[in-house]
Design a protein around this nucleic acid. Structure first.
Ligand SMILES: [Mn+2]
Ligand SMILES: [Mn+2]
Ligand SMILES: [Zn+2]
Ligand SMILES: [Zn+2]
Lengths: 138, 138
DNA sequence: TACTTTATTGCAACAATGTTACAATAATTA
DNA sequence: TAATTATTGTAACATTGTTGCAATAAAGTA
């Protein structure tokens, strides 16, 4: 993602193009794994953690990134490569390696639709698979 | 679950039968929804929150309850009605209602097995479906 | 039952993460 | 360039998670 790409993405979403936002989006678009607020603090030490927190919130609001429920205690976030509508239609699997700890979005691997009891309706599915990634299995 | 049932379940797991444990298991075996540490504090105000925290840990260790990853910021726990082995073999769907907020284990509705990229292995799956429950759809 | 052993509890204290208020500052628009 | 309004940094506070330690209670034994 070029600087121009980021700028237009931000403006398309009614967000001003500021240094934090450039940096955070740069990190997300490059990194293949999900990151926590703390992860960002470590990577971008020049910005305050509250600023990073609010940056994440604004991106979540605009669906530029998505939040991934984790059992780790802190929330994880990842870039939504597909555009918003596509992301919501066919959502992807989240995979967390039990050895190296990395949590990644498996783009291209669709979540199989489960059956629900009658009377229940479905809006969103989140599937988190735990196991060993390719590297850690080798 | 009778008092005797609870006692033998605890002893079977090498846990002493104490008042907190009776109460917590009583709550879990009756309630159909998942609960947080805070939820337990509200329901059982006579016990210290750290005691409840450690009670949950001991039950998790023995697989008497299971932890459910949520995006709410705090961990949720639910009773494992099936015994441990069965629970691990065919795990169940977790359903969270977007209207009333309740998170429940849909026992009897199995998680469909997803495909993974080659080289990846699977140890555990967690599927959280969001939508409206029967009550909230009526 | 009384005694011994060892797990468990309550309290205090601390760590980590999440969240808001407000004044200073920077990005847009005219 | 000036005006407008979003965004930032700092501080402060809330909530949840976690550990150490001495007091207490449960289980096992005589
Ligand atoms: Mn994802
Ligand atoms: Mn469950
Ligand atoms: Zn790995
Ligand atoms: Zn409901």
């Amino acid at each position: 993602m070029t600087r121009e790409d980021i700028k237009s993405l931000l403006h398309k979403n009614d967000l001003r193009a500021t240094p934090v936002r450039y940096e955070v989006l740069d990190v997300f678009s490059k990194k293949e794994e999900a990151l926590s607020n703390k992860d960002l603090e470590d990577r971008l030490p020049d910005f305050d953690r509250v600023t990073l927190y609010r940056t994440l919130q604004s991106f979540i609001d605009k669906s530029i990134i998505h939040k991934i429920p984790g059992d780790s205690g802190s929330a994880l976030y990842a870039f939504s490569f597909d555009d918003e509508t596509v992301y919501k239609k066919d959502s992807h699997i989240h995979f967390q390696c039990i050895k190296c700890g990395k949590l990644e979005c498996l783009s291209g691997f669709e979540i199989p639709i489960p059956e629900l009891p009658s009377g229940y309706s479905m809006n969103e599915i989140n599937m988190i698979v735990k196991g060993k990634c390719e590297k850690c299995n080798a």
